[in-house]
């Protein structure tokens, strides 16, 4: 029994097919709302955590403990004027924030959320190749970054974008290699290793224990994808103002801001799904979703701590690191996993 069936049963008076189509739509909308709420919560957690770690109080004026602060900020961003720089590439300039947000939200649809009590399985979309789809969808976000940088007619933005591209290329190859290792390991146990749900089911031993090298590569890659402090050369506020988003303001800037925090959450969710067993844990059938949230939250806190305590890596050193360390490590990991699969350990 999953959430889709539940909604379809409630809507069954409409007939078989309409109820399923409507149920699917409703579920998608629920996930989009979930993603938005989660990102807003993520912003709140970040601000509160950052404040407490830095011996401040953080937002505490709007609502109890400042919970509504994110809403207030969102409202402020919506009503602010969106400044259009002269000499911009109009279509690309307007398309970029939408692409960022689209790629982020679509990523949330294919995550296996696991079962939760009465609701049943919360996963929205099942696909035999969802592992590939999810990475393809996330790969839309760099396109948004590139478009925003080259379209806004600003030198800082161009330099930021160039750095961003260089960074993306240098970590995405090792990241996909580590995913390949995952697929290999999963294929030994389940028949659908390209399905992200199959990857979760295959983890009677979490893959983080089975292939620590791949885990390391993937964590670094997800941090670089979200581009927070050690890897924020693209934005690097003390060098390039804010990199590719320099000229943006108002709601368009808000999309970039949500994109940053959303990617941290999505990345943590993917790490916990792919490497830490996702929704697996005691009483999986009742609280699988809760397990996923707990694992994600711990990873989010670790990410924020890294963000707050690390200085920025210089771009050439990161490229060096990506090609000279991450890539060989990913290959070694692949070979080790190959032997594990051959030996029948996995």
């Amino acid at each position: 029994m999953n959430l889709l069936l539940r909604i379809a049963t409630i809507l069954s008076f409409l007939g078989h097919y309409p109820s399923y189509i409507l149920g699917y739509l409703i579920e998608t909308i629920i996930v989009i709302i979930f993603a938005t709420v989660v990102i807003a919560g993520m912003v709140y957690i970040f601000r509160k955590y950052m404040a407490r770690v830095q011996m401040r109080i953080g937002p505490n004026r709007v609502g109890k403990f400042g919970i509504m602060q994110v809403m207030a900020d969102g409202l402020k961003l919506i009503q602010k004027e969106s400044i259009m720089p002269k000499g911009r590439d109009d279509l690309a300039y307007k398309l970029a924030p939408i692409l960022i947000f689209f790629g982020l939200i679509m990523g949330f649809i294919f995550i296996p959320y696991g079962p939760l009590a009465w609701f049943g399985d919360l996963t929205v979309s099942h696909s035999d190749v969802s592992l590939i789809i999810i990475f393809a969808l996330i790969a839309i976000m760099p396109i948004g970054e590139i478009l925003s940088g080259i379209s806004s007619n600003n030198k800082y933005a161009v330099i930021g974008t160039l750095r961003g591209i260089a960074k993306d290329i240098s970590f995405e190859v090792p990241m996909m290699l580590s995913i390949l290792a995952i697929v290999m390991a999963a294929s030994a146990k389940v028949s659908n290793p390209l399905d992200i749900n199959g990857v979760v089911v295959a983890q009677s031993i979490p893959f983080a224990i089975l292939e620590p090298l791949g885990f390391f590569v993937f964590i670094i890659s997800m941090a670089a994808r979200a581009s927070y402090s050690p890897f924020d050369m693209g934005e690097s506020d003390s060098e390039l103002v804010t990199g590719n988003t320099t000229e943006y303001s108002g709601l368009r800037f808000g999309f970039f801001y949500l994109g940053l925090f959303g990617t941290i959450f999505l990345g943590s969710m993917m790490i916990s799904t792919i490497y830490l067993g996702g929704y697996l844990g005691p009483f999986t059938n009742y609280m699988g979703f809760i397990w996923l949230l707990i694992k994600t939250l711990i990873l989010v806190i670790i990410s924020l701590t890294i963000w707050l305590s690390m200085p920025r890596v210089r771009i050439d050193k990161f490229i060096n690191f990506g090609w000279k360390y991450l890539l060989p490590i990913a290959f070694v990991n692949l070979v080790i996993v190959g032997f594990l699969v051959l030996g029948g350990i996995a």
């Binding site: 950052m50 770690v53 830095q54 011996m55 401040r56 402090s229 050690p230 924020d232 690097s236 506020d237 003390s238 963000w307 707050l308 305590s309 690390m310 200085p311 920025r312």
Partner: peptide, 11 residues
């Protein structure tokens, strides 16, 4: 802050 470390500033 120049190097991107946010927290020591407050300490």
């Amino acid at each position: 802050l120049d190097l991107g470390m946010l927290t020591p500033f407050f300490y």
